[in-house]
Design a protein around this nucleic acid. Structure first.
Lengths: 259, 259
DNA sequence: TAGTGGTCTAGACCACCGG
DNA sequence: CGGTGGTCTAGACCACTAA
């Protein structure tokens, strides 16, 4: 056994080991779902100390090749096909047909979608949200926080904020399931005809809390998406803050070339 | 001195130290450009070993708070305000005014933009591009690869692909500077009136090559953006593949609520 | 050369998971 | 309980940078 991992300036051992393991995964020697060799096994196989073996597998995690679970071991990740997030999901015709945006899309991707409500109720508007809603920072808004699953794994956490004066008139907005077409349909039912959505997209590494909430490996990239919904009358009636596992999503936008 | 960093299950010392340092940066005690305390200094300040001090500063790097240089030390990063990438940049009126998309935006952000042309000439269409251009994979297309800078640092690498039969009729497309309004203006000059752009956005960690090309730290997230330009007649006349340093950009999209 | 970060070891103890 | 990953130490040597 004892694969040769020699001193070699500019190519530290832990990287040599990491590359060796990555090869085995790419070549299929270690198939998706397989358990990776444990640290102690790597120590004898490559004749290194635990710290070095650790650094080697730590390299594979940000590369998205493995998942690590404390007390169980590391496992080769199976790469699921990505979910599409198309700007078409906001078409009024979809709402009229009674579909909420998320379900309409997952369905199309052949996934088993699920939603958990984490919180619905009053909250203080974070300053970034307050600015978009054109209310004072810290003032009361309705917050709706949900966690979305695809095939049983969490992929997205979204929080919608609505101005209190609007929300209080629409009891469905306080329900876990706001009814066919989602909250946008309810807003339109109540005279807030939507005119335009604005989405801003950022990408960054997941924070510690996000790695917990979405059961990610540290160092995984996420999308941070902020969307605001504006009525034809020009009022912003909702701001939605979303964290998505970047690996799982492709965002699609159509942009008219006009003027 | 000797700040208290105590045993505390669930909150390891290296994270306590990292958080302490992060606070100091956010509070401005450590200003942008300042040298971080060295590892040996942290060892005595917090009464930990070198390995623990290392892990602490290693936490700050992926957070984008510091830059580390072997033999010199770590330094608080100066966080340049992000560049906005708005879907408005494709408005025809901007092209008529003679502005290329990139310069129009940078200008607005108060940046010193620059572009380097890496390659202009014939190339074989990658399969993903060929599919969008509706040509056979591997067939000849015109490729235009550029590297974009903001305030002297590379932030974006973009490659445009155009069908050869269209490109060969438009000599300006082979020039480093295609003239006012960029290649889209030239296409429209030659009868290819644009109707719609489609953008797909992915986010992932930078590959090794990308970290070199864009001088990034390994583990930095990037946007991978693919845009196709379709004429009113329904033909796709350009596909543009772009890698952007995620930290530097915010993407902006407007989505009409219609139908 | 002195000071810095980068790699590595040997050994310790803890926290989590499964049988 | 045994096996696993997670944290930590003390000390060693190397590699890069600046004076």
């Amino acid at each position: 056994m004892a694969t040769t991992v020699q001193r070699d300036r500019g190519n530290p051992r832990y990287l040599q080991i990491a590359e060796d393991l990555a090869q085995q995964i790419r070549a299929g020697v270690l198939a998706p779902g397989d358990k990776m060799p444990s640290e102690s096994e790597l120590m004898v196989r490559y004749a290194v100390s635990q710290g070095t073996a650790r650094k080697a597998v730590a390299e594979l995690r940000p590369m998205g090749l493995i998942d690590t679970h404390h007390g169980r071991g590391s496992f080769v990740k199976s790469q699921p096909p990505t979910l599409r997030k198309s700007s078409d999901r906001f078409r009024r015709s979809h709402r009229r047909a009674g579909k909420a945006a998320y379900l309409a899309e997952s369905e199309q991707a052949g996934k088993a979608p699920a939603v958990t409500v984490l919180y619905i109720g009053p909250a203080e508007a974070p300053s970034a949200v307050a600015e978009r809603l054109e209310v004072l920072p810290g003032s009361q808004v309705l917050a709706r926080r949900r966690l979305y699953f695809s095939n049983g794994i969490p992929v997205e956490e979204a929080t919608s904020y609505l101005p209190w004066d609007i929300a209080k008139e629409i009891p469905e907005l306080f329900a876990e399931n706001p009814g066919g077409g989602g909250i946008y349909a309810r807003l339109e039912d109540n005279g807030h005809v939507l005119g335009e959505f604005r989405e801003t997209v950022r990408a960054r590494l997941a924070t510690k809390q996000e790695t917990v909430a979405l059961s990610l490996s540290p160092g995984s990239p996420v999308f941070h998406l902020t969307r605001s919904a504006q009525t034809r009358a020009g009022r912003t009636v909702e701001v939605c803050d979303t964290i998505m596992v970047a690996e799982q999503f492709v965002l699609d936008y159509r942009i008219p070339a006009g003027d």
